[in-house]
């Protein structure tokens, strides 16, 4: 029997993000979990996350570390016998988790993604500054340990201090587009 409620369920929220709608047709075969290179690192496996989300366990799902260990290697997506875009589903859970302020506290991947996105919105990802800022803000000791790797890259001419810039008109155009997108309030 299908019970209808007027309030938007957690599954509805997931379905409103492109690729998220597959959650409804999962048969819990576990192919995604068996294929995932990082499933053993996750507090809940990919198929478990789907079952939990369908049971309405919003808080538990969004505060899981699982989606932050997703490598976006798409192996689950190509193997899913139901054609679920499992990788997109993981991305949907990531963005919902950020929106709801429920990100797992023991992983710094969300911080890295946010910083990455910040630079993308400026038009270019400056590898050196992105990495430096990320390490300094999350674990200064790691910044120290990264010095030999960074030095190797610098010595081989693979890290630039100067970063690429868009033309002023291109930059303004990008800003206008992203500002409009923001005013539209996301995809939901």
């Amino acid at each position: 029997m299908v019970t209808e409620t007027k309030t938007r369920t957690f599954v509805d929220e997931i379905c409103s993000i492109p690729g998220g709608e597959g959650i409804k047709i999962c048969i819990q075969c576990g192919t995604c979990t068996a294929s995932c290179p990082n499933a053993d690192k996750m507090d809940h496996t990919p198929s478990e996350l789907i079952a939990m989300a369908r049971a309405g366990m919003k808080k538990e799902v969004l505060s899981s570390n699982a989606m932050w260990y997703c490598l976006s290697c798409y192996i689950c997506t190509v193997r899913c016998p139901r054609g679920i875009q499992q990788t997109s589903l993981m991305h949907a859970l990531e963005s919902l988790s950020i929106q709801e302020g429920l990100v797992h506290t023991k992983t710094v991947t969300p911080t890295m993604y946010r910083l990455f996105n910040h630079y993308c919105h400026l038009g270019v990802l400056p590898e050196l500054w992105f990495m430096t800022r990320f390490y300094l803000s999350t674990n200064p000791l790691r910044a120290w340990r990264m010095i030999p790797t960074a030095w190797g890259l610098l010595k081989h001419g693979r890290l630039s201090i100067r970063s690429r810039k868009l033309t002023p008109s291109g930059s303004n155009q990008l800003k206008a587009i992203l500002k409009k997108a923001e005013s539209l309030g996301g995809l939901q």
């Binding site: 993000i17 492109p18 989606m67 991305h91 949907a92 990531e94 963005s95 950020i98 890295m112 993604y113 946010r114 990455f116 996105n117 993308c120 997108a181 539209l184 996301g186 995809l187």
Partner: peptide, 8 residues
């Protein structure tokens, strides 16, 4: 990473 922070 961008899509995982802000899809639109």
């Amino acid at each position: 990473p961008s899509g995982s922070v802000d899809e639109l």
